[in-house]
Design a protein around this nucleic acid. Structure first.
Length: 558
RNA sequence: GGUCCGGUAGCUCAGCUGGAUAGAGCAACGCCCUUCUAAGGCGUGGGUCUUGAGUUCGAAUCUCAACCGGAUCACCA
């Protein structure tokens, strides 16, 4: 009799031959009544476990200049990633931070798997919301500027957006007390009428309005640049809605001519998506002006004209799932072959313990405030622990900045991007446990060992000797390090920086145990010592590379 | 109401392409610095993986249903 045993090999990659062999043997003992087969397999596995297997793995790893990161050649596929897309009427907040970090990390990961990447941004620099800030500034600003007030430009403009909202609400409640319904009051309040008039003036090219608009936007851009710089994100090309919002109209007109869309009696243009299981969608208002969707069609067309894009990724919150579903179908209907292929990287919202952030209710976590708080906390912790006592102020500040930002970025990137996440401002972000600083600390520790080694005249090894005997921690570490390129690939496939974050944590945890249990420089057997040094060097390299993919810097000491 | 997403320890999250005793961190308690950085390591307690059926040798993982929570369905962006 012959019994065929099918054994799951799926997880085999993460286990050593010893572990895996033992598993197979145990399984067979329990499940397969074939003693001879059991013995054959056992014998085979014993043969396959060469003593120098893991050492040679380590040497292979060491030969790779970088881990899973290649320099893309010109012919490699081009991925365009859009992220950030802020409105220019208020400063960036925690939601934007998540968007920015995900977008940036995603582009780094795309590069790491060999693609060319163009990072882009669409700035919503026009519309009624900007007019609200402008109007409030005109009425109550007394000519205040970033220079005169010392305020960051985006915060200044945001302040007047809030002022508008306050005054607008006051008008509404007054109108309601005069007997109007809430709906009517919202529509008839003098302030909103004035803002709408201002938007019409802007579209008509009124010089005063346009120059005010330009001035206030320039304040905002200066502010945004500062925040982007602090966060360490950047863009290869930036699109402005004011320059692209009319372009979609042509495409819609073409679609209308082709009979893809239809016009209603009042002159508005619609797409009928009921065959796709969706509703009807407005594309041009009855007065001929364009809406959000029209603009996105135009911007997409513009981008594809300029770049040979193979993959277009929109990093936009999951509240816009419907929008991108529709956009994809519309582009397809218009005959753009890439319409169906666009990727909406739909990330979850950042929520506070009491619920969603609402800018109107002032329950937003401001990006600049948060960044500053994180760095301040890092400074306090460092001082308490006396970690940076030997450093110059400049060095210390740089390290403190890296650690504070590392804590913030890792906190956000370690969770699955698709899921909503909770941020509790009262319980500030931790510096212990599964955190950015924990990982940075391990890197600094390794660097410290290497420095000490150099001081003692121990040369850094080029390769490990095959006679080195490995302990369990060491083989586990080599396995983890060797796995890194697979992880990067997986992160790219799943569009998930969190995969890299969680892997790095696992690696670092393992290294800390090793570090605690075994000494490196004090090891008397130089073969073992060199192997450990080589292992440490490679762990540090992986940490640095992996954190780099998350946009997190790692210090040499901390 | 239609569509989509989620529900794992007190809290924040991994694990989900089916596989062994469901893992971390935080919080609580206890231990370890004359030894390469204690932002570290070790240990203890803490679970009906929302519920119920189904498929399977085997389900946190796949299917269906229910319950709970969120998003979305604008002549806003």
């Amino acid at each position: 009799d012959v019994t065929v045993v099918v054994f799951p090999f799926v997880k085999a990659a993460r286990k050593s031959p010893e572990q895996y062999g033992q598993e197979i043997c145990e399984y067979l003992q329990q499940n397969a009544p074939i003693v001879s087969a059991f013995n054959v397999i056992k014998g085979f596995l014993n043969l396959s476990i060469a003593t120098d297997y893991w050492v040679s793995q380590l040497n292979n790893i060491n030969k790779e200049e970088t881990f899973g990161t290649k320099n893309a050649d010109k012919n490699a596929p081009l991925t365009m990633i859009e992220y950030s897309s802020p409105n220019t009427n208020k400063p960036l907040h925690l939601g934007h931070i998540r968007n920015n970090l995900l977008g940036y990390s995603l582009s780094e990961i795309e590069k790491a798997v060999g693609n060319n990447v163009v990072k882009t941004n669409i700035v919503n620099d026009r519309g009624i919301h900007i007019c609200k800030s402008m109007l409030a500034w005109q009425k109550w600003g007394n000519g205040e500027t970033p220079q005169s007030s010392g305020m960051k430009g985006d915060h200044l403009v945001g302040k007047y957006y809030v002022v508008f909202d306050k005054e607008y609400k006051a008008e509404i409640s007054q109108l309601i007390s005069q007997g109007q319904t809430e709906e009517d009051a919202k529509r008839n309040a003098p302030l909103i009428l004035e803002a709408q008039e201002m938007l019409r003036q802007w579209e008509a090219g009124n010089e005063t309005v346009v120059s005010l608009w330009q001035e206030m936007n320039s304040w905002v851009y200066a502010g945004f640049d500062q925040t982007y710089k602090a966060l360490g994100v950047n863009f290869d090309c930036i699109y402005y809605e004011s320059e692209t919002y009319l372009l979609g109209k042509n495409k819609v007109e073409e679609g209308l001519a082709k009979g893809v869309f239809y016009k209603r009696e009042d002159g508005s243009v619609w797409a009928d998506l009921t065959p796709d299981g969706l509703d009807e969608k407005l594309l041009l208002r009855s007065d001929g002006t364009s809406v959000y969707m029209t603009q996105d069609i135009g911007t997409a067309a513009l981008r594809f004209e300029k770049y040979p894009i193979d993959k277009m990724v929109y990093v936009v919150g999951n509240e816009q799932n419907y929008h991108f579903q529709v956009l994809s179908i519309l582009l397809d209907k218009l005959g753009f072959k890439w319409g169906k292929d666009l990727v909406h990287f739909s990330y979850g919202m950042v929520e506070l313990p009491e619920g969603k952030m609402k800018s109107r209710e002032g329950t937003v976590v401001d990006a600049d405030d948060l960044i500053k708080e994180m760095i301040d906390t890092a400074r306090e912790v460092s001082q308490e622990l006396g970690k940076l006592d030997g450093c110059t102020t400049e060095e210390a500040e740089n390290i403190v900045r890296m650690v504070g930002l590392g804590a913030l970025k890792y906190f956000i990137l370690k969770v699955d991007p698709r899921k909503n996440m909770t941020f509790n401002p009262k319980e500030s972000i931790d510096f212990n446990g599964n955190t950015g600083p924990f990982i940075q600390y391990t890197h600094a520790r390794i660097k410290s060992v290497l420095r000490k080694g150099a001081e003692q005249g121990i040369a850094l090894p080029e390769s490990a000797d095959k006679s080195a005997v490995l302990n369990e921690k060491e083989t586990a570490l080599i396995q983890l390090v060797a796995e890194f390129p697979v992880i990067v690939k997986q992160a790219a496939d799943e569009c998930s920086p969190a995969v890299i974050a969680n892997y790095t944590y696992e690696l670092v945890k393992e290294y800390n145990q090793f570090y605690h249990d075994f000494s490196i420089l004090k090891e008397e057997n130089t073969t073992v010592r060199d192997m450990r040094l080589l292992l440490s060097i490679n762990v540090a390299k992986v940490i640095k590379t992996a954190m780099g993919l998350l946009g997190i810097e790692v210090p040499e000491r901390m």
